[in-house]
Amino acid sequence: MIRLQGISREFLVGDQAIKAIKDIDLSLDAGEYVAIMGPSGSGKSTLLNVIGLLDRPTAGTYLLTAQDVTQLSDNEIAQVRQTKIGFVFQFFHLVPRLTAAENIALPMTLAGIPPAQRRERVTEVLESIGLSERAHHRPDQLSGGQRQRVAIARATVMNPSVILADEPTGNLDSKSGQDVLRILELLNEQGIMLLVVTHDPEIGARARRRIRIVDGAIESDIQQ
């Protein structure tokens, strides 16, 4: 479903070009559970951002469901992100003034989906993350683990085919980290492709496929 061919991403710092990822070839199929690991600064986040269309590669081709997405305009890319990709971030990134339910509904609101349909879907998703009673709480009234669950609910509300999580447990204690991971894995069991960037070998070991990146290149790609 995802096919990267010769993907590189260079950053210009002053007049010096830094290659965050170099010439990456990678194929990911629908429904896979992949952990991306590697030392700090090796390019894991950059790779994830390129896959999530938040960032554009400086070289290479990227086919998403057989469509070359490197050629798309900003508006078309936004459209693809909206319908196919869900993001979960280390720092949750919830809108502080909106309630949990409103945060979860935000992608649907942006997409122009009518309120009745939104409410129905949000109730459903809230139930699946076990936060039905917290629907009308604002983020500052929730614990870290609850916030991350709300963020996951937001990532899934549009029924994406891929969920990209960059250190989703990085800001959580191990107990809430386990809960969050469990929810992500449940989504994966329903057929959504799951990509998790992590430092934690224990978490990495739970994935069926483990990719290790060093210095912007794939060092190993182990499939169980």
């Binding site: 999530g52 938040l54 900003d74 508006n75 936004a78 459209q79 992100r81 909206q82 319908t83 993001f87 720092f91 990134h93 809108v95 935000l106 992608p107 942006l110 997409a111 937001r154 549009m158």
Partner: peptide
């Protein structure tokens, strides 16, 4: 950060 988030969840520039 909020603007970044809106973009990540699919808001095009004109929105």
């Amino acid at each position: 950060a909020e603007i970044g988030l809106l973009k990540a969840i699919g808001a095009p520039p004109r929105q």
